[in-house]
């Protein structure tokens, strides 16, 4: 039914206008492989607030409502590229395969879903990427632009460990203050506070054995 809605500009057009309006902003249109194909716009952290202000205040966009803020954890991944070359070896032409591997470093993302209440269009998906998954996990907070990001950015900080610079009140929201790790990260290992249950599955049983081995008894 989206055809009944007044259409928003295409992402490419928005990007062109943004580049003119916000000097120096690095923008990238990220494609989406799903059937719905809601594309997104990636913005660098240094210009994120200016870009967000523009998106909110521009007369044609008026994206005054930030619906959803969330984080995504992308781990380091190995990309294999196979190159086929034809070479003449011993007078015969042969096809050779060369596989090279290189590691794409992981990063965290903060994703914002923006809508316009005034013009009733959307969503525009805005993404910010961190430099890495450790000390460089920093992006700009958009809470000064949209109040609705306040608790959600706190949640992303809590569960993913993304630091939002410029957030007025950045502290844990769902986990308790003394909690150390960030549970929604993909490499999070849950603590071994184990309670033996009467139906041990294979891996549960193994874990119970490990847990109770230290206590000197094999209760499982």
């Amino acid at each position: 039914m989206s055809d009944l809605r007044p259409a928003m500009e295409t992402l490419e057009r928005i990007r062109t206008r943004l580049e003119a309006a916000v000097a120096g902003a690095e923008l990238e249109v990220v494609a989406n492989g799903a059937v719905a194909a809601q594309g997104s716009l990636r913005v660098d952290a240094a210009h994120a607030v200016a870009v967000a202000r523009f998106l909110r205040d521009d007369a044609q966009l008026q994206l005054d409502y930030c619906s959803n803020v969330t984080g995504v954890d992308w781990l380091d991944r190995v990309v294999r590229t196979t190159v086929r070359t034809r070479r003449v070896i011993d007078g015969l032409e042969r096809e050779l395969e060369q596989t090279t591997e290189h590691t794409v470093p992981g990063y965290l993302e903060a994703v914002y879903h923006l809508y316009s209440v005034a013009l009733r269009h959307g969503p525009l998906v805005l993404r910010q990427r961190t430099a890495d998954r450790a000390d460089g996990a920093r992006v700009a907070s958009l809470t000064p632009v949209w109040r609705s990001a306040e608790f959600q950015e706190r949640e992303v900080y809590d569960l993913f460990g993304v630091v939002f610079e410029g957030h007025p009140d950045l502290r844990r929201i769902l986990m308790w203050d003394e909690f150390r790790d960030h549970p929604m990260r993909k490499d999070y290992v849950e603590p071994d506070d184990y309670e033996y249950e009467p139906t041990p599955h294979d891996e549960v049983l193994a874990k119970a054995r490990r847990h109770y081995a230290g206590a000197g008894g094999d209760r499982a």
Partner: peptide, 19 residues
């Protein structure tokens, strides 16, 4: 298929969305 989607409805309490 690999990709992403955001779906939302008007739940009794407000906009309930799944990303």
């Amino acid at each position: 298929r690999a990709g992403e989607a955001y779906g939302r409805i008007e739940a009794p309490k407000g906009e309930l969305g799944f990303y």
